[in-house]
């Protein structure tokens, strides 16, 4: 893994070469991020709660999902930009190196400007927690950490799936944004506020519900089923087929080429 971190350091060094651009992008990220935040705030000036979720409860969910997404944007950016790698032939180069192919894809690009969002997400997480009256115990703390971890894993899995799609065709890539970007925007709210169909879709097809709904219910004391606290662990199982699909894609690439 040493080479992964070294490569990230090189990416950071590359980005810092363009100092002004880096600073401005960093600041613009703050503005973008808080515009999301203000959308939620303005919603709650009209309604005191949405289907039983108060402002800070929603913000808790929002910050965790933003955290998971931004984490991937910083540390797994190469997956998000995988189509470039295929189109420009960089993937061949990675196959010529004696290391794990997924890790090489991850570091192939990174976007350290997005660390800005990572910090904002953590700030809002702290704000939300301090405003909520949660009776913390060890399980709830574990549950919170699991939520954060699973938020990372779910977006990682979805990025993997979207990247796998590029092995088949690099056309119509907008489709993937429905699941990545679109999914993120949905998942910022507790899935429970949506209609039943959505809940089922986001429980079984893309299991956002195990990231931001069931464990959230447990932390907020809306449910005391302990199993909900550990439901984020299911994401590890979800990750497995996503990895398999990606490796199948790599195999296909070997026989079909680009």
């Amino acid at each position: 893994m040493k080479y992964y971190f070294k490569a990230l350091a090189l990416n950071l060094k590359s980005e810092l070469e363009y100092r002004t651009s880096f600073i401005f992008s960093f600041i613009s990220q703050i503005i973008i991020f808080f515009s999301y935040y203000f959308v939620i705030l303005s919603l709650f000036t009209k309604f005191s709660n949405i289907k039983g979720f108060t402002l800070y409860e929603v913000l808790l969910c929002f910050s965790i999902v933003q955290f998971g997404y931004s984490f991937n944007e910083v540390f797994a950016r190469g997956l998000d930009k995988f189509d470039n790698l295929i189109i420009q032939g960089g993937f061949d180069r990675l196959l010529l190196r004696p290391k794990n192919i997924i890790i090489q894809v991850l570091y192939n690009e990174s976007d350290f400007v997005k660390t800005s969002r990572l910090f904002h997400a953590l700030i809002i997480l702290v704000v939300a927690i301090t405003h909520l009256n949660i009776k913390w115990n060890i399980i709830k703390i574990i549950c919170l950490l699991l939520m954060m971890l699973s938020a990372i894993i779910i977006f990682f899995s979805i990025f993997l799936l979207a990247a796998s799609y590029c092995f088949i065709t690099v056309q119509g890539l907008e489709v993937r944004n429905v699941f990545t970007d679109g999914g993120k925007h949905m998942a910022q709210y507790p899935i429970g506020i949506f209609s039943k169909g959505f809940i089922y879709f986001f429980t079984f097809i893309i299991p956002y519900a195990f990231v931001n709904y069931y464990p959230l219910l447990y932390i907020l004391g809306k449910s005391n089923k302990t199993i909900y606290a550990f439901s984020p662990l299911l994401l590890f199982i979800y990750l497995i087929p996503c990895l398999i699909i990606f490796y199948l894609g790599v195999k296909r690439y070997g026989s079909v080429g680009s």
Partner: peptide, 24 residues
């Protein structure tokens, strides 16, 4: 590959060497 670079574009070659040291 004459037409495709394996060097990091924005940083000195020596940095790429250091990464290759770990990769290989």
């Amino acid at each position: 590959f004459g037409q495709r670079s394996q060097l990091w574009w924005d940083i000195p070659t020596e940095d790429t060497f250091l990464l290759l040291k770990d990769i290989y």
